[in-house]
Design a protein around this nucleic acid. Structure first.
Lengths: 239, 239
DNA sequence: AACCGTCGGTACCGTATTGTACCGGCAAGC
DNA sequence: GCTTGCCGGTACAATACGGTACCGACGGTT
């Protein structure tokens, strides 16, 4: 059983549901840039991040744009919950770490018998809906600086500690902007003393400052997950 | 029973499921700008648009930005399907028309007993996921001109005939840009002979032309709904 | 110690879009 | 008939961002 309740979604399950699902869960180490599945793939496994961060992307021409970020507050494998079984987005490991994995068919079997499990995962689907919906308007209206701060806050909430591996290049892909654009925006945040960068290693120094710069979307989405999970996913202070 | 199968999602239901749900459905006339529900509202009714178009919006500061468009291919009331019962977006009538309405508690009761109904609406949720996810990256990368063409195509697919009521002002709010910006973009499309504008009444003249200008997102989302419904929602030619 | 790939800082110009404003035409109401 | 909104066309400076390119610095490899 171990530490599966490091995942807040699993932790929100009643003891019996978690126990039944836990039978089929194993913990694996997910290296950065590993692919969980591609658009069009049949979903054979459900993933519950423990301290890793997964990016969900959609294709735009030949490139990929980030649609959502998933960490210890959620799961990857909603197609199984929806009963379609086919992913229509790409999922890959943005920040390496541990992930709990279960076979999708086991999860599907449990879903049909365990009312509470189904209810919880459907409520998660709704929270995810809110997250993605907010991102639609966020990309419409908010500046690179705001979105950059938001992304850093979201990621900080999902990793242990205040440091994680992330290059300007990777962040640029996520935000759908140029690498040079991120350098300017992130350099700004660094000058303000909110973060510290050093060759792909970023340290969060001042969350309050980042929240000041970030758009409201950070708070809106965080609140939605708090309602789902009964506990806030935002780090309390850090640095 | 009447014409509820004007809604493609209802039409995709097996005869018995539709019959049971139809018992509780009534058709109403939804006037433009009417509000179905606001963010935070308890969902008491489920709506199935017949020939109207509903906009789902999220708040950005004091304004609202469009997240998704729903027409005869879908429904409004996913919180009931997810079992949360609480809307976290605003829904209002973008283009007036008829809507089939059922009490949310009746739908909820049917969902727990009717496996096929539940499966169909969950598959719809997945299609909606795809639509919103694609919109996230669409707003990241595509020009106003492309998004404008896409919006017009999507709306054209959801209304009867080739004409509908829409001001530059309303379209600007939907796309999250200035009214003057829409005037330029739409004027462009008009000069190209793809559409015709006149005081809030727009006529689609050349779908092929619009598809040429529009981004791929139109096709990707349309295909996702085609897989769900078993039939394409795109108008075949029109003009 | 030399090498090379990764990473980030900076600069240039072009363009899409914003903010703001003004103006003319159509339509409905008195 | 006249007025009053609504609707759409246009203009202009300001800005945010894209495309591209170059360069220096660090770090792992041999």
């Amino acid at each position: 059983m171990a530490n599966f309740d490091e995942n807040l979604l699993l932790r929100a399950l009643p003891r019996e549901s978690l126990h039944r699902l836990g039978e089929h869960l194993i913990t694996i180490e997910a290296p950065s840039r590993a692919e969980l599945y591609e658009a069009g793939d049949t979903v054979t496994k459900a993933y519950f991040p423990l301290d890793s961060v997964i990016s969900m992307t959609a294709s735009v021409g030949s490139a990929q744009g980030e649609v959502a970020t998933v960490g210890h507050e959620g799961m990857i494998g909603l197609p199984t919950v929806f009963g379609t079984g086919c992913a229509n987005m790409r999922f890959f490991v943005q920040i390496g770490g541990r992930v709990a994995v279960a076979p999708a068919d086991r999860l599907a079997a449990l879903l049909s018998s365990d009312e509470t499990l189904r209810a919880t995962l459907l409520r998660y689907a709704h929270a995810m809906f809110t997250q993605i919906g907010q991102s639609v308007v966020c990309n419409q209206r908010h500046s690179l600086r705001q979105r950059c701060a938001r992304w850093l806050l979201m990621t900080h909430d999902r990793v242990p500690g205040d440091r994680f591996h992330l290059t300007h290049e990777a962040l640029a892909v996520m935000l759908g902007v140029r690498r040079a654009g991120v350098t300017v925006a992130a350099g700004n945040l660094q000058k303000a003393g909110f973060i510290h960068y050093r060759r792909g290693e970023i340290t969060i120094l001042n969350r309050a400052g980042l929240q000041e710069v970030s758009c409201e979307c950070y708070r809106i989405v965080t609140d939605a997950y708090a309602r789902l999970l009964g506990t806030s996913i935002a780090k309390t202070s850090a640095a």
